[in-house]
Design a protein around this nucleic acid. Structure first.
Lengths: 145, 145
DNA sequence: TATTGTTATACTCTATAACTATA
DNA sequence: TATAGTTATAGAGTATAACAATA
């Protein structure tokens, strides 16, 4: 029960929770839920993509995705366009308003995080990333199995 | 927009998402939701605590907490006892069944994670923790402000 | 007056499965 | 038959505010 690695995992979880707490505060200020922001952030700076692709990237299942997209469409933040290539498929992209919101919210969430790293130099970034990359490789390898 | 630190944050998020994906699979196998497991894990190996304390530790607000506790109480996994010291307060603790579930699920979630760190030696743990501790300090300092 | 916990309300997300329309 | 997306359903979490009992 007192596994050596637990301390690492606890730290990782605490970092992540702290991050999410901060970022969700920003997100909610713009009347977005975390999943809605996830969609906006995924569509931001792209020409758009199919529901399928969007679901794969955000890990939101298709039934849920329809609901989240509906709410964002009602807010005029995105639009759905039926594809001509494959008429089963629907192309989703941000409207001008959605793009503008993305450009407003995203940098704020980013700026929030930026402060946390204010005193990091290049070497410290490199060290942190080396550790996290190693860990991520283990996780990805496991997920594939 | 291409901040240096974004790569670190993205890695951190990916690690955490991977972890949660794995751990939630275990949790759901026991018919628990993530918030429910959060409560069970917080109460595990303690004598119990007040709703107030439980809410503070899990970051679940009191209105929500009542609902989550109700569902766990219906499953006979925890019990509520009105405190005699302060009769506004309610003491929550795991039942024998709840404790047993904790002792079953928690090690499984733990074992899952343990595999990820199979090839870590003491120095690698120390390096990872040093990085995460530094980051956590920044986050906590910010949250307090 | 302030605090602990419950209740009430309204919304969102979630999983699941049946369904429509295309391919 | 298989795939893309919608609809339907039921359950669970969330924020918020009003409320009861107690301090």
């Amino acid at each position: 029960m007192t596994e050596r690695y637990l301390r690492s995992v606890r730290l990782l979880a605490q970092c992540m929770q702290g991050f999410e707490r901060h970022s969700n505060e920003h997100v909610r200020r713009f009347d977005l839920t975390p999943p809605q922001f996830d969609i906006i952030a995924t569509l931001g700076n792209t020409e758009g993509m199919s529901c399928k692709e969007l679901g794969d990237k955000t890990l939101i299942t298709k039934g849920t995705l329809t609901g989240v997209l509906n709410r964002l469409e009602e807010k005029k933040l995105l639009e759905r366009i039926r594809s001509n290539d494959d008429r089963r498929s629907i192309f989703v992209r941000l409207t001008a308003a959605g793009q503008q919101l993305f450009e407003t919210v995203f940098p704020q969430v980013i700026a929030e995080g930026k402060l946390l790293f204010a005193d990091y130099d290049e070497q410290q970034f490199a060290e942190l990333e080396q550790q996290l990359t190693r860990l991520k490789q283990r996780i990805d390898a496991k997920g594939a199995a």
